[in-house]
Design a protein around this nucleic acid. Sequence first.
DNA 1: CATAATACCTAA
DNA 2: TTAGTTAGGTATTATG
Length: 955
Amino acid sequence: MDFKRKKIAPAGGFSSSQTKKKKTDWDDDGPSQFEEELAFLDEVEADMAMEMNDTYSTADVLPVDKLSENISPKWLRPPLPPIDPQQDCICFHQIELDHYIGSHIPGMLGATQGPVPIIRTFGITADGNSVCCHIHGFAPYFYVPSQSGFKQEHLNEFKKELNSAVIKDMRSNKDNISQAVLAVDICMKENMYGYHGKKINPFLKITMALPRLIAPAKRLLEQGIRFGTFPVHCYQAFEANIDFEIRFMVDNDIVGCNWLELPAGKYRIRNDGDSNNDTAKKMSLAQLEVDISWADLISHPAEGEWQKIAPLRVLSFDIECAGRKGIFPEPDKDPVIQIANMVMRQGEKDPFVRNVFTLGTCASIVGSQVLCFEKEDALLKAWAEFVRIIDPDIITGYNIQNFDVPYLINRAHTLKVGNFPFLGRMRNIKSVIRDSSFQSKQMGRRENKVINTEGRVQFDLLQVLLRDYKLRSYTLNAVSFHFLQEQKEDVQHSIITDLQNGNEQTRRRLAVYCLKDAYLPLRLLEKLMCVINYMEMARVTGVPLNYLLSRGQQIKVVSQLLRQAMKQDLVMPVVKSEGGEDYTGATVIEPVKGYYDVPIATLDFSSLYPSIMMAHNLCYTTLLQSGSIDKYGLKPEEFIKTPTGDCFVKSSVRKGLLPEILENLLSARKRAKTELKKETDPFKQKVLDGRQLALKVSANSVYGFTGAQVGKLPCLEISQSVTGFGRQMIEKTKQLVESKYTLTNGYKADAKVIYGDTDSVMCKLGVQTVSEAMEIGKEAAEWVSSHFTPPIKLEFEKVYFPYLLINKKRYAGLYFSSSAKTHDKMDCKGIETVRRDNCPLVANLINTCLQKILIDRDPMGAVEHAKDVISDLLCNRIDISQLVITKELTRTADEYAGKQAHVELAERMRKRDPGSAPNLGDRVPYVIIGAAKGVAAYMKSEHKKCENLCPLCYQ
DNA sequence: CATAATACCTAA
DNA sequence: TTAGTTAGGTATTATG
């Protein structure tokens, strides 16, 4: 008998701590692979420097406190070339845009007295110089229809103010004011109110009337939105719930991360001295700080040459703290002992700055600068200065947003390091920690800390991964393994303090570990093309980069909708959102369950919901209200009735905004794809690929937006019509396929649609080979397409052969698409193998069984295998400590009242070691500690004959 | 003990 | 001051 316990390889890249190789004596080990990699970077750099001779002059040191003698010239940005404001234009790649309340600057548009709102944007020139630009004269506003209860005395006050206004354009349009009034943006803080019958801050009154923006509102009010859902009189205000930044960007055709141009003669450069008192003093750490009026600014659409990306500086860092045994480090008690930094220019391969700040001595590390400090406060002070000198545009790391940055700020506060919390680009703005909670159906409730770093975008890799990827584990180690097949340096958390208290060699070991933790996020960012993809998303949807990480899906659609609405002279109403009835969604065709040893052709509608909206012109502005048909005397050929009974006018009467947005997105995607094919430069290819992906994702989220009942502009008539059309289409597709491909029509067999979900049908065509199935599939797709309104299109996508249909939303098959000879992959949908709430043993077992069934075509072999594994399990031949189960802990332990195993476990972990206790949203690996009732009896019974999975696995 | 309610995660 | 949708399978927990 075999008494040895079998080792089960962990599935899904998860590796429990027990399986890791333990290094007990690090001094005896040679350099790790990472150390060699670091050393290699040094060599590469030396060669480059020889060729290019690219050292920067130290003359351009930014006016911050000196960071001892360790300042390296390569930390500095390239020196600013001489600029003649009358002759030279300045172009920069804008990466952040915000606003503040400041005061008037002579020569600039806007109110001359009192506080004025100023837009501020940061960016980088093509040469890598940092720019801070103050944009003057743009005022917040929203539209108020004159008949909606706006008091006449307000209007009179407005007129008075306007008559004395300094902006001359305003005068010529003053007669519009009685028709439509532009009032304050409610997002403005401090004693300013939107118009809700409340008070209006006087300074805003005189800056409000931007004539070209009155025009559409006026027309709107005169004509009404003829076919709009929302009659004007129903709403107090239009576009009152729009963020000021978005308002500015939309009105000026600026999209997130595009290039801005300051034309020669139109801007003023700020400088440090106070010699010139009509020029404001430089307030930022940017190399170039300028003022300009909003009307003078030129925005370049992200096309052609302006698709380029400036050499942005990306800083990745990681800190280590000396925690007490078993207690999670607390910033008021536990010191920061190391901070590792990696700085890279976007588009380059390797970081050009690599260093580590250590508390206490540390032996040298080839490929990295080591900066040793005796005192912790000096270390923190120096690091903050380092950040200000490096002047990063993007700050990244792993969980920096909720751990590293707050910890550093709190620690610096405890140690009274005065200048520490100035991590942004503004000299006078302190970085403070704010708590924010964000909840959405997509991501659940998420508590976050927010730290302001003006001009620098925080790009916490953990947050990116939580948003974009569904993973079994989100530890840096697991993530690195999953994407890079690489792991962290092997240092247990518990020994960090011991390493710190050791000698310069042990601290060196810790420093290498810390460096790798700063390096890995950079590598991951690169591998996953996060920066490029996010920038393309910002450009496509028009929102600033930081919105993409801090806000939800809706703002992206709102931004596009506003832009399109402006083109058609329409304004967006404000609706109060209230939860209501759910509407019917898609159809899932009842599956004919079974194992199919014949090819199954799969036909899909490509971008089903967007194409429905385009085909039928579904939009807010085309929806007809009950009674409108008679009221406007519409002829039957001028409108359609959707399956849900809602009516929309055809595009011949009025073209909808949503269809237009979708057409633009999809045609831009087509363009990007063709450009991608032509492009040979791998960097540009990445950009284009990121772009086409962003375009696809944006198109698909438009439907969701219309159905979001707690949202900015829900319209269930649209969303339910879309799903209604979808249901009709999949049903019709099934009928068409089954009626044409029949024996009587001369085909080999009667075709049968055995399954379908939302936009796809799986067809058994009665043919024996993959290539036949492909051929008929293609023909069928084309033929069926001809029965629908363009651009709706059914496409042949793939053949499954063989195909195992277990249930609705649960199937597996070998996927043939690129070739009829060999399968591309084994495709599993909804089965345990793709779910993250199973123990890996189950996932592995089922995966192996599926392979036996589909690849080896040996179902009985699969049964035998399952029996063997269950037998091993029941006879205790599997090391139970390897049987790791992971489950999502999405609620606080209290809410569960200790009723689920993983919650119980979380509580025990907290008791034993509060430091390692799981937090909200963490995944908790745990082992079986007791079997359920009935398992013992089950084990005693004839489990050898059991063909089902052992309940143990599920316990 | 049977059934309903709920949690979780996925398909599209 | 902010949040994309519905359909649906499977396991676990609550309830009579």
